[in-house]
Design a protein around this nucleic acid. Structure first.
Lengths: 205, 205
DNA sequence: TAGATTGTTAATCGATTAACAATC
DNA sequence: TAGATTGTTAATCGATTAACAATC
């Protein structure tokens, strides 16, 4: 068990988990690093190296027990916990996140939506009601920014002031936060631009 | 000008472009690698190294001219072109992508939506009409998969059969494609899981 | 000219892969 | 037991950073 897990390893954890979930659903009991590596298009060496970071979950001559490996990864990532989240921004992305069932199934609950335009209604609250009290009372630990670029920083500041320390940002801009706040970005247009680059690199019209 | 640009560099191109766009909008004329690096939380050395991959756009003792650097990056990424895209999957994500104005502004046009459930209407076409002829006639070069996990592979196959060689995948599953097809994934839950991991690592409740 | 800052080469750091003894 | 496969150490590869001569 290392004290500091490398970012490269952390980024692979969800991918391992995703594959293990499928194998488990298909009632497969064990898998070798070689076979798992093949499924993920990486090397067996890397699979073993990665898992050994957390102590090693395999058995020589046998491989890895899928259910217990999945269980271990689930704990490592923190999927054995519940997360209450709020989303700010009631555009299409915001709505998509609220209605998507997959996150809820993993313990991520979007408990309410806010919007900067004070178009309050039953489902969307005005942002003025996003307060420290609200965050505490509802045990909110994650905030989702689904606003446009312009509003993102302001919304982040408001979240942080209310006590949120973990932010999932969908606005296409880097936000500045104090050191103790964690931000994870989904920059869709960055991904689209990379697709365009790779398309042109290959002449894939 | 290197023949093969490293993935790490490619991934940074959209970020450079994003910052340069803002600077240009703010009417700033020049910037040094040092200042640009500061804005992106990377080193000045990396900025210069990255740009020199493409030939070097700066001037000693001066820095980089923002507008011309932005122009160069735009060409490198391929933002001087238009891209016609179709999206398959008319759930929330699909709808969000269709309605988002930001992509269109960069030359990415979602020209139509399809759905596997043949709930055809004026805006959403039945997937049976996604044919080679349609793709050719409408000059479609990118396909977006916004279906659930189960349908993703089938949709990818159909896209490829119709002649699409570039896929932007939002379904939470790796899809298998021939060598000449480019796939760029947005795995939202992977990002959320990484956020959870980092939150727990820091005890950020 | 003198100061600033690039582009590039060399050094360092981190991540991936190979190899193999340990052992189920 | 013999074959399979792990966990780990060492070697390689790739990416980042440092340093500095070139030059605007």
């Amino acid at each position: 068990m290392k004290t500091k897990v490398s970012p490269a390893v952390i980024k692979r954890l969800p991918r391992y988990y995703r594959v293990l979930e499928r194998l488990s659903r298909d009632n497969i009991k064990k898998i070798s690093s070689k076979d798992l590596a093949n499924m993920l298009d990486i090397t067996a060496s890397q699979v073993r190296q990665d898992f050994s970071t957390f102590g090693g979950f395999g058995q020589q001559g046998y491989g890895y027990d899928i259910d217990s490996l999945k269980e271990e990864l689930s704990k490592i990532i923190g999927l054995d916990k519940q997360y209450n989240m709020i989303v700010v921004g009631a555009g299409n992305i915001g709505k998509a996140l609220v209605s998507y069932k997959g996150f809820k199934a993993s313990g991520f609950n979007v408990i309410s939506s806010f919007d900067i335009d004070e178009k309050a209604n039953e489902t969307i609250k005005p942002i003025s009601t996003l307060t420290e009290e609200y965050i505490k009372e509802n045990n909110v630990t994650m905030g989702i920014i689904a606003t446009n670029q312009e509003a993102a920083q302001e919304v982040a500041d408001k979240m942080i002031k209310s006590g949120i320390k973990n932010i999932w940002n969908f606005a296409p801009v880097d936000i500045n936060v104090p050191e103790d706040v964690v931000v994870e970005n989904i920059f869709m247009s960055d991904s689209l631009f990379v697709l365009a680059y790779r398309m042109n690199e290959r002449g894939n019209n």
